[in-house]
Each structure stands twice: as C-alpha cells, then as structure tokens.
Write a protein that binds this DNA or RNA. Structure first.
Length: 645
RNA sequence: GCUGAUGUGGCUCAGGGGUAGAGCACAUCCUUGGUAAGGAUGAGGUCGUGGGUUCAAUUCCCACCAUCAGCUCCA
C-alpha cells in the first residue's frame, strides 16, 4: 500500500503496517525519538495501523501534539506510581496541559513534599520498565463493571455521564489501566525525565459544590538538560512576578491593618499610574470622549434597575441593612448605571449620537478572600471606563473605533504581541446568569461576530464568559505563572438601555433605544501596572518611569555642576533627581541600576573641566561622554512615549 | 469560599520549650571616591493576633488575621 508523508512524499509500505513500524523505517530521517503519530490529521498513538493512502506524520516531543501525548502518558505514569504507593487513592482525571500535566486523586491525607519525592522516584522506575501502552475498548456495562471492580467511583461516574454511544477506550501499561481517550506515547519509557512540581486542591469536575481532590502537577522532558532549562525559565519568570518585584521596587505595599486586596501605591507606583492616566485621558479626549465624574456609591435602587443587585450583590460592599434601614447604599462595582443616569438627564436626538462618556473610575468589588492577588485582583481599583451610546447603524464604526483606541494604547505600552483576543459568549444552559432570551443573544452575538470578522483579528470563542447583559471581546494576557486575566474589554450591551429607559429621538420622530458599548481603554490601571512590571521586569518604558534621569557626582567638587544640569533637565520637563551623597560612584550606580533608571549621568572633576557627563543608559551600560547640550538634546528629543529600552 | 504551604527587626532569611541571630537597608563618624556593595560604631524585634497546655511558649495545640500557589469565581 501507499502512504503519504507529512512532507508530501509518497512511500510504499507493506499492508497493515502501524505508525511505529513505519517510524522505525524512517528513524534515521527523524532525528528525534518518535512519540506519537498523526494519521489523516488526527493525532493517535504510534501503534495505530496506517490505512492505505493515508497521510502520516510522525510526531516527536518537539511537536505540540507529540509533547501532549508524552505528558498525557506522564500523567498515567504518575497515577500508576500513586496507585503503587497509595493503594487507597481513588483516581479522578489526569490530562496534559499547555505547560505539563496533572492528575487528580481522592485521598484521605494530603501529599507531602516527601510523598512527591517518593512518587517521582516510583515514576522513574515505571519509566525504566518501559511498559508498552495498549489501547482497548469495552462496551458500556463491562466498562462500568471493570471500574467498579477496580474501586474507582470517579471513573464510573465519568462513564455513566458519557453519551450511550460513546467509545469507551482504556489504556493499559503493565499493572495499570485507565479510562482514557488518548492519544498516548507508545510506552512509558518515552516520558524520559519527569518532575513533580507541586500539589494543589481542585474540585471534582471543576464544580465547587463537589469534593475537593488533591491534584499533583508535573512536567517531563526528553533529557535532564531540557528539564533543568525549563525549571530555570520558570525561576526567571517568577523573578519578574510583579507581586515581588513591584514591592522590591517600591511601587506598592500592603498592610494587614488596611486589609486584603487593598494595595497602597507608593510614590513611584503612584507617579507611573498618574502618567498612564494622563496619557489615556488625553488620548480619549482627542478621540471625542467627554468626561463624567460620578459618585462612588449609590442607593441599592440604582443597582436594582441595572440588574447588578440581583446578579452580584454578594460581590458588592453594601452599606446598611435592607431589613432595618430605610436607605441602603452600596459602593459602586462599575460605572455603567451612573453614566446611563447622566445620559438620561438630557433628551437626545439621533444627531447627538454617538456620545462617548469616559471616566477614570474608582470601583469596589468584594472579591472572595482566595481571589486577591497583588495588583491583579484587588478590592478597589481604577478603571478607564467608558460607555458609548449609539444608534444601531453606528455600532460597527464605534466598535472599530474602540478597538483602534485599545490597539493604539497597547502599541504605546508595547504589549500588542502579548495578548490574545477572546470572544466571550453566553452559556445557553445557564439562564440564571444572563438576562434576555436566546433569540436576542444569538442576534447580538452574530452582530458582534460579524464586526470581529471585519476587523481581521485572530480571536477564539469562549462560552459562558459573557457579561450578564451582553457578549464581550476580552483582551487577555498571561501573568508570569501562566494564569490568564482580562486586561481590556469591549462589550455590546443590548439589555441595560431598555432597563434604564434610555432613548433617543430618531430622524423619523420616533423614540428609540440606543445600543451601548461598554469598554475599558487600558484595563484596570492596577492590573496594567502589574502586567507592565512583569513584561519589562521593572524596566518600564522611560515615559512612564517616575524617574527618568539620575545625575551622580563622583567628587564634592562636581556637586554644583550636577545640580545645575539637573535643573536644566527639569526645566525641559524631564523627571530627574541628583544623587549627591558622599558615596562611592560604584555604589550609586548599583542603586540606580537596581531601580532601573533609564539614564545615569556621572560627573567628576574631569567632566566639570570639559563640560560633559559620562552617560550610562539602562540596558546598554556606558555609552561614553557627552557634552551637556548634546545630552539634553538626546534625552528630550526622542519620542519618550515610544522608546523602550 | 475551598485545598495545601508560609508568617522571626524596613527587606532577604537562620534558629529553636528557659523571653533572639546574620546580611542588606537605616543613623553617626572616618573615607574625596571613576561606573554593580570602602571602613568603624550604633540603633532597631513583646518572633502575625488572641486563647490554651506548661513552673516557663516566639517554639507545642486551637482559633483568627495576613501572605503565596492551585481550584472555584471574576459585572
């Protein structure tokens, strides 16, 4: 029979050969060890038979899917090791992820670090045994009986919840069998070098009403060297953790007496945030936004109209008691109903629209205690919040305008390549969470999808991530731990305008309900600051640094000289300080470097004599001596908003 | 909220049933120094908070608070 290889070439092989046998014939061509196969575009194990005329791709650990097959196998090895050492442990699920694998177990006692070391040792034993993985299927009742006999209630539940006609496949490696859809590496030996990273709790089937299981996270690589490199990368990424670095650099602090999720910005952090705010507010103004300034709190009545009271009361800071008090106030968790009230204070013609309201808005959300994280999830935060009230005809243009604003801002921050776009849709099976009916949702989601397709963006769709009043385009970023959060959001709201009785008079004299676009143009400032600290490892673009230039004298004789030039810089609008302490220059440089100051200017007797400064640029080291005028020109002339170094 | 870990001077950490230590930072003095740490001296902690056990608790136990990771949630 003939098969087609991934490179397009056609190969003649014996009938009924499996991918592994073909891979062996091709072994010198591959270079790397084969771990899985892709037959006609479907990833499968190497033991799968290749049909006549099929396209075959041999996957190695360097292929995303090959890697997943190995990691998935590693999770089975983990489960097998746990079963050997802790026979009472019940198995739940154990998939590969983008960054490794995990397996969830139900055990009486938590796994200790010593346990992990033991399990890892046992895994290495199983890998050395190089047990082949064999796949087989069972009819439903037999599959259930098998898992019941094995004492695996979670597996039984999984099978029972699968559709009646589902293929129930099992993978067996030595004395261990697991219900699993595959695909897998051909044998446990392919896992090579495993490493268990940590334990964590995880709800069975991701539902907090269910029992919490014990999850073990791990990773595996073809060699110790690659594993070490990976672990080093993780360590380096965690060095950038804003929660650590942001505190070390004195951007923010927290205090138990102030409370959880309530970071205090210190002078450096506050200055950077002010610079970001000025930039965003000016940019919005130039794009036709008008300002509002609305209260931090309102009566519960307002949130009842918007629906936030019903949907999110538990997440709000409520002042007073509904049972006892005539008036109950609540701190605002968002600005929407306030800006709608502003809109309703005037009558509007279609000629007024679109109206673009913007507000640098302080918001309060009573996040659950386990959710708070540095500057990323907090109880009080600042959002560049805006609502665009427009006619249906204007919706697409306005949406595009918002996207253009967001992309411009991302460009200036230098993060446009660090984000992904998520089209967040409703979940038709969760009616409680969403207002409106299915027809409306489908209509608005279709409209949004059409707009998104017109933008040419690469985006992915996510069910159940919409706001209760409409679908969203969320711009997502990952922090140093790989956890994803929303940075920017654009939402189409088809529900709240009507609830608030917002109208405009159209050209035909009829009152109509406008569309509303909710959007944030820079995300929450605290979260954005966190992401910037992590992205730049504290070396933020110069224009948003609280201190752009530090002038340092070597000798007392150069002190006045340094101060005088710093004054010149200050007059030119540069944020500059002078370090004229009687310290050694190496010491001053060390401190300034630690603070990621973009320009360090050094003067001793020599510089005083020839009117120059020894210039050191962040990330570049010494760049030589420069005369004062040329230096002033260099520092002030560049486009400080765009230069990142 | 749930699971697990952690909490010792401003920071990073050591220690351990008999009321505490290092380095950095800070203060004073000496040092006039050439691009990542000059030297000396000193000050600073009721060992997260509150209970309990004990002759004695920072150390052991319990509760709470906070921090970290993961889960769940995220208008």
């Amino acid at each position: 029979m003939k098969i087609k290889l991934a490179d397009g070439s056609v190969k003649e092989v014996k009938d009924g050969m499996n991918a592994l046998e073909i891979a062996k014939e091709l072994s010198q061509k591959l270079g790397k060890s084969a771990v899985a196969a892709k037959i006609n575009g479907t990833t499968t194990e190497l033991t799968a038979t290749v049909p006549d005329g099929a396209t075959l791709e041999i996957l190695t650990f360097d292929d995303e899917e090959g890697k997943k097959a190995v990691w998935h196998t590693a999770s089975h090895v983990l489960a097998q090791a746990v079963r050997r050492l802790f026979p009472e442990a019940k198995l739940a699920i154990g998939p590969a992820t983008d960054s490794g694998f995990y397996y969830d177990f139900d055990t009486e006692k938590p796994f200790t670090n010593e346990d992990l070391a033991k399990i890892e040792k046992e895994m290495k034993k199983i890998i050395a045994e190089n047990l082949p993985l064999t796949r087989f299927t069972l009819p439903r009742e037999q599959a259930i009986a098998k898992m019941e006999a094995a004492g695996e209630p979670y597996k039984v539940e999984l099978i029972r919840d699968l559709p009646q006609d589902a293929v129930l496949s099992f993978y067996e490696q030595g004395d261990f069998t697991d219900l699993c859809a595959g695909p897998h590496a051909v044998s446990t030996g392919k896992v090579k070098v495993p490493k268990l990273l940590r334990t964590a709790g995880a709800y069975w089937r991701g539902d907090e009403k269910n029992k919490m299981l014990r999850r073990i996270y791990g990773i595996a690589f073809p060699s110790q060297k690659e594993l070490d490199e990976h672990l080093q990368q993780i360590k380096e990424a965690e060095e950038r953790d804003h929660n650590k670095l942001g505190r070390e650099l004195h951007y923010f602090t927290t205090s138990p007496a102030v409370g959880q999720g309530l970071p205090l910005l210190m002078p450096k952090g506050a200055k950077t945030m002010q610079l970001l705010q000025r930039f965003v507010e000016d940019e919005e103004e130039s794009r036709g936004y008008v300002l509002t300034k609305t209260p931090f709190m309102a009566k519960s009545d307002l949130y009842k109209i918007s629906g936030h009271w019903d949907h999110y009361k538990d997440g709000m800071f409520v002042l007073g008691d509904e049972e006892k008090d005539d008036e109950v106030l609540a701190l605002r968790p968002m600005t929407c109903p306030f800006q709608y009230t502003v809109y309703n204070a005037e009558h509007h013609s279609y000629k007024d629209l679109p109206i673009r309201y913007g507000e640098t808005s302080t918001l309060f959300r009573n996040e659950a205690s386990g959710e708070m994280h540095g500057l990323i999830r907090v109880r009080q935060f600042t959002l560049a919040e805006g609502h665009i009230i427009c006619t249906p005809q204007q919706l697409e243009d306005e949406f595009m305008g918002v996207l253009d604003l967001i992309q411009y801002i991302m460009g200036v921050l230098g993060i446009e390549n660090d984000v992904t776009y998520r089209f967040s849709k409703w979940d038709p099976s969760d009616k409680d969470k969403y207002v409106g009916d299915a027809q409306e949702w489908e209509r608005v989601q279709d409209a949004m999808r059409t707009i998104l397709d017109h933008t040419g963006l690469t985006y992915y769709e996510a069910d159940g991530e919409a706001a209760f009043y409409g679908p969203k385009l969320d711009i997502q970023f990952k922090n140093v731990f790989g956890k994803e959060d929303t940075l920017f959001t654009v939402q189409i709201d088809f529900a709240l305008a009507e609830r608030f009785g917002m109208t405009y008079v159209d050209s035909d004299g009829q009152k109509k309900t406008p569309y509303i676009i909710h959007r944030s143009s820079i995300g929450c400032y605290e979260r954005t600051l966190a992401m910037l600290i992590e992205k730049y490892a504290g070396a933020l673009p110069m224009w948003m640094m609280s201190e752009e230039v530090r002038v340092m004298n070597i000798t007392e004789g150069a002190m006045e000289y340094c101060r005088a030039f710093a004054d010149r810089l200050k007059k030119a609008g540069i944020r500059v300080t002078v370090d004229d302490r009687p310290e050694k220059i190496g010491y001053k440089i060390r401190e300034a470097r630690g603070e990621r100051i973009p320009y360090m200017l050094v003067a001793g007797d020599k510089e005083v004599a020839d009117g120059t400064f020894a210039v050191r640029r962040r990330g570049q080291g010494e760049i030589g001596n420069m005369a004062q005028d040329a230096l002033l020109e260099l520092i002030t002339s560049q486009d400080r908003e765009k230069v990142i170094f």
